[in-house]
Design a protein around this nucleic acid. Structure first.
Lengths: 143, 143
DNA sequence: TTCGCATCCAACTAATTCAATAGAATTAAT
DNA sequence: ATTAATTCTATTGAATTAGTTGGATGCGAA
């Protein structure tokens, strides 16, 4: 079970765009800052734009910005820019219902796990994604 | 993000073995009951045996049984019979630490999500996996 | 207007993983 | 011995992933 690279790069790209605030940021700059291959980033940007999460003015010095506040963009919004609805197992998509579903011992469990994961991704917002400066164990300040 | 078929079949196979209690159950029977291709089930059984979750006597009329109580076998135990430790992103495995980890905005989030999913799989035990008989909306009995 | 830069867009490919199959060797009950 | 089941190794075919290539388009500066 892996998160695919478009989602991972997409999330990192989104934090770059977030941090450029109203000014906007170019693909090239995102690519350099985040070590994402430029050509690959291109298709990631397409995904984010189609999902209506970012926008820009076309032309030479465009620069991408968010379409809404970072605290209104969830990790699941970004996930869905690159993947269909989260479905850990195929029978979660109704179109793919499997024949022995009505005697399946595991279906309910997968549905439950699927929902919980989805909910965790929906409850995490772009504004909370930050670099953790603490490398070592957390120091508790005496008070 | 998908659960692979070995894990899914493996979990279903485990509920069959659980339900055979002390008697034991043959691959062929598991294969028929759960519509799992027999040859493929073979490699799944191997995984479960190597993970020390099931055992049998080899030969003609063997039959598999659990090595311990179903309520002591977690979904995560079964998952790990077929996959290495859950790692949604590669940098979770220390051997694969990525170069810009110390400036990564998303690492902490993936670590947190990874831990929560792992915990949910560790807290679900084989004895709780059952067929849900209710097809329609739940009927609440008047009392 | 022509050039450079950056985005936009579609097709393609190389590599890897996944799901399944095939067949031979082994084991043990009858 | 025969039979029925498991065990082990190797291979295949399909699907997915990650990334590339090449060209069209749009804008601004020289």
């Amino acid at each position: 079970m892996k998160i695919n690279k478009k989602v991972r790069y997409g999330l990192r790209a989104m934090t770059e765009i977030r941090d450029s605030h109203q000014i906007g940021i170019l693909q090239k700059q995102i690519s350099e800052n985040q070590s994402i291959p430029l050509n690959f980033l291109d298709s990631i940007i397409t995904g984010l734009r189609n999902a209506n999460l970012i926008t820009n003015y076309s032309g030479k010095s465009s620069g991408y910005i968010l379409t809404r506040s970072a605290k209104e963009i969830s990790v699941y919004d970004i996930y869905c820019a690159f993947e269909p609805e989260l479905a850990l197992v195929n029978c979660i998509c109704e179109s793919n219902e499997c024949k022995h579903a009505n005697m399946c011992t595991t279906k309910d469990y997968w549905f439950e796990l699927n929902n919980q994961i989805k909910q965790m991704m929906k409850n995490a917002y772009l504004d909370t994604l930050i670099v953790n400066e603490n490398k070592g164990p957390t120091k508790i300040k005496a008070h």
